[in-house]
Amino acid sequence: MRNPANLVGGVGSGQPISLLESVSIHFSYENGYKVFENINISVGQDKFVGIVGPSGIGKSTLLRIMGGFLAPDSGATYLMGKKITKPTPKVVFVHQSIITFPWMTALENVMLSPRSMKVPQSEAEIVAMKALEDVGLQGFEELYPKEMSGGMRQRVAIARALAANPMVLLMDEPFSHLDELTAEGLRQDIYNILFRVDTPLKGVVLVSHNLTEVLELADEIYILNNIPATVVGKLVVDIPRPRSIRNPKFSEYLDFLYTKLSPPGGKKNE
């Protein structure tokens, strides 16, 4: 198959300091099973980065390492050149399962972020209202999660993440529990919501097994494969937005991803 010009076989180097950068990540389970070997991922300013890989390869685990929730065996993740040693509101994690608190209204759920950063009640409310408005939930502030659809709940979770004023958003399959129509609607909104000029958000990392979804959203895609997992390729998606799956380049990229994601044939763990 022809290799498109902007497909890169490995992680590039010699670029300016990244917004978020994971360098030489090695990680294994306690029983010795190696999960990652020398993973390098770089998220540039204003970039939407996708990570794809076969099921069970460790995509969510990698996201947790990038967020400081897990410590790698070796290697580190840096935010603007500063090592991340523990979770921080500057890098907010959006879970695969949509996480809301059933005893709080939508507004209270979102206010949790500013309130935990000691923002005064009235100011926190303004921030939360704004975040809810950004995700299209104005008028639903007083609803409880139980009274909302899955798509609305996910918007609440995203609003809460945005209300923390993060620099980076780590999204772990955020649309996987939504029906296709809702997911598509949210996908269309998400890029615009995330990269509005008035937010401090500078980068997003999206983990997904849905290749179309990643191609639709990401500027760059890291492809994980093999056992232990390594970055087997990086794809710079050069399709203008809004992207259409009918664009010939889209199919080309998709084919490339499928090729790279063929069953792992790497080294076997002991």
């Binding site: 929730f69 509101p89 890098v91 994690f93 879970h95 949790l112 923390a164």
Partner: peptide
């Protein structure tokens, strides 16, 4: 995920307990 979220938001002991 709640635990992760509390960590992510750097919530203090009393804030975690109460909220």
């Amino acid at each position: 995920e709640y635990q992760e979220l509390m960590k992510n938001l750097n919530m203090g002991f009393f804030s975690k307990m109460r909220r």
